[in-house]
Design a protein around this nucleic acid. Structure first.
Length: 403
RNA sequence: CCGGAGGUGGCAGAGUGGCCAAUUGCUCCAGACUGUAAAUCUGGCGGGAUUUCCCUACGGAGGUUCGAACCCUCCCCUCCGGA
C-alpha cells in the first residue's frame, strides 16, 4: 500500500523511519534537492541516483507556465518526462505566486532583500507595480515569463499536481510576511484553512486509486505561537501529512516554530519543513521531529561558488559549513574541496581547477560543484539517520554545532 | 625621413580649463544566498589618516592661468599611410 509512513527509531523527538510511495521508499529523515523546473539544476537523474538522492521537489508554478501541465501529462507525467523514476514531491505554487507579487507590497524580507533592484526595474518598465491579487477564490498573478495573467486556486493547484503525477503533493496555501500583525496573520491562516479543505476535496475527487499521492497540509501562523498551534491542530485534524511553511527569521526563531508545531501534531504523520535546509537547520529540525526538508541551498550555493566543507577543515555553523571557491587562496590549491568527501568531484578535481572553471564560466563547474554540495547534504542526512538508529544523534549534533 | 592619429588608474575606454582621485565595461578582491524570475545579487578596487581630510596621480620636462588630465613649447614612445 502506498504512502505508508513508519517510524522505526526515535530519540527524544527525533525519529528515523521510512515512507513508502508509488515510486519507492524514502528513508527519513530525508532531504529533497530542489528541481523546480523538472530538473535539479546541473544534475541529471543518473548523477542524482549515484549520489543516493531518494526524492526531489518540483514546482507547480513553474511547470504550469512552462511547459504546461497538460503537456507533461501527455508524456505520462513528470517522472517519465524527466526520466526520474524515484519519488517526486511538488510544491503547490502558493509560495511562488506570493513571492512574485505580494512580497513587493508587503515587503517580505525573504524575497525582497535579494531581488529589490530587479523588482524595481521590472516595476518601472511596466509602469505599474506587479501586485498579485488574493481573493477567497485564489490568487491572480502575472507570469514572470511574459506578464500574462493567471489565476491559481486550490483546485487548480491540486489538479496540476496530479497531472504531473507527483508522489507527494502540497495543499495550496496563503502567505503573509513576518511583519504582519496577529490579526492579519489570523486572517491569512483562516484562508489557508479554507483553501486546505478545498484542496482536500479536489484531491478526493481526483485521487482514489491505490497509487494516490500523499497530500500535505501547510502549517502557517508566522511567529505567533497561538496561531502556529491552531494551524498545526487544523492541519493535523484534516491531513495525513504535515508541512510547515512561512518560515522567517533566524535559526532560533525557526526552532521555536518547529517546536510549537511538532509538539501538537500526531507522531505517526510525516512532517516536512518547507524550504529549509542549511546544515544547522537540518540538525535542529531533525532534533525537533522533522522528517523531510527541501531547500535550494546546496544547488544554489554551488552555482554561486559556496561549497560545503566538513568540520575537519573548518566547516562550522558560522560559515554555514561552506567555503568560497572564488577566494584567491584557492587559485593554486592542489587540494580537493574536502579531503574527507568521497564524491566524484572531490576524488578527481583540485580546488584550483574548480576555481578556474568558475572564473572561466564553464558549465562543468556547475555540474561538479552541484554534485559535491548535493552529495555533502545527502550524506550528512544519511549520517544523521544512522545516528538516530544508533542513538547517537545528540553526540553527532554537538560535534557539528557545539553545545 | 615625410604625412596622419594617439599616449588616462590591472586591461579596454570616457573625459578635453574648475562640479576629476577621474564615467563605464571587464579583470581583480570580499561578502550574501533557506518551498529557485538566481551560472544571481551586494560592496570594494592609487596611498594614508579613516565625518567635510591630506598626499601622489592622466607618457616626461617646462610654461600659461587664481586653478590643467584637459591650453602652449620641447622631448620620449606607439600605431597607420608614404618614401
Amino acid at each position: 500500500m502506498a504512502n505508508k509512513f513508519k517510524i522505526l527509531h526515535t530519540g527524544g523527538r527525533a525519529r528515523a523511519g521510512r515512507l513508502e510511495t508509488a515510486h519507492g521508499v524514502i528513508e527519513t529523515p530525508n532531504f529533497n534537492p530542489v528541481g523546480t523546473q523538472g530538473t535539479v539544476k546541473a544534475l541529471g537523474p543518473r548523477e542524482l541516483k549515484e549520489i543516493g538522492v531518494q526524492i526531489i521537489l518540483a514546482n507547480t508554478y513553474h511547470l504550469m507556465l512552462r511547459p504546461g501541465a497538460d503537456l507533461i501529462e501527455k508524456f505520462g507525467g513528470l517522472h517519465k518526462f524527466m526520466n526520474w523514476d524515484k519519488p517526486i514531491m511538488t510544491d503547490s505554487g502558493g509560495f511562488q505566486v506570493f513571492s512574485l507579487g505580494i512580497a513587493l507590497e508587503h515587503g517580505s524580507s525573504k524575497v525582497l532583500s535579494r531581488s529589490k533592484n530587479q523588482e524595481l526595474r521590472i516595476k518601472h518598465e511596466e509602469g505599474k507595480p506587479r501586485l498579485n491579487k488574493i481573493t477567497e477564490e485564489g490568487v491572480t498573478f502575472q507570469s514572470h515569463l511574459d506578464g500574462s495573467k493567471h489565476l491559481l486556486t486550490p483546485e487548480k493547484s491540486i489538479k496540476i499536481q496530479t497531472q504531473l503525477g507527483a508522489d507527494l503533493i502540497v495543499a495550496f496555501d496563503d502567505h503573509e510576511s513576518s511583519k504582519h500583525t496577529h490579526n492579519q496573520m489570523l486572517e491569512s491562516i483562516e484562508l489557508t484553512e479554507k483553501w486546505g479543505l478545498r484542496s482536500i476535496q479536489k484531491y478526493q475527487e481526483l485521487c482514489h486509486s491505490g497509487k494516490k499521492p500523499l497530500l500535505y497540509g501547510v502549517v502557517h501562523g508566522g511567529t505567533h505561537k497561538d496561531l502556529r498551534v491552531r494551524s498545526a491542530r487544523f492541519t493535523d485534524d484534516n491531513f495525513e501529512a504535515i508541512s510547515i511553511g512561512g518560515i522567517y527569521g533566524d535559526h532560533k526563531q525557526l526552532c521555536r516554530i518547529i517546536e510549537w508545531v511538532t509538539g501538537v501534531v500526531s507522531d505517526e504523520k510525516p512532517r516536512h519543513l518547507l524550504g529549509i535546509g542549511e546544515v544547522e537547520d537540518l540538525f535542529n529540525g531533525i532534533e525537533l521531529g522533522i522528517d523531510f526538508f527541501d531547500c535550494v541551498a546546496p544547488t544554489r550555493r554551488a552555482r554561486n561558488g559556496s561549497l560545503y566543507i566538513s568540520l575537519k577543515i573548518g566547516g562550522r555553523k558560522e560559515n554555514h559549513f561552506a567555503m568560497n571557491i572564488k577566494s584567491a587562496n584557492n587559485t593554486t590549491s592542489k587540494d580537493p574541496i574536502d579531503p574527507d568527501c568521497r564524491c566524484y568531484t572531490c576524488l578527481n578535481f583540485t580546488r584550483a581547477y574548480l576555481r578556474h572553471l568558475y572564473v572561466a564560466n564553464e558549465i562543468l563547474y556547475h555540474q561538479l560543484a552541484t554534485y559535491h554540495n548535493v552529495y555533502f547534504i545527502t550524506k550528512l542526512v544519511e549520517k544523521i539517520r544512522e545516528s538516530i538508529k544508533e542513538a547517537n544523534f545528540k553526540k553527532l549534533k554537538e560535534k557539528y554545532l557545539g553545545k
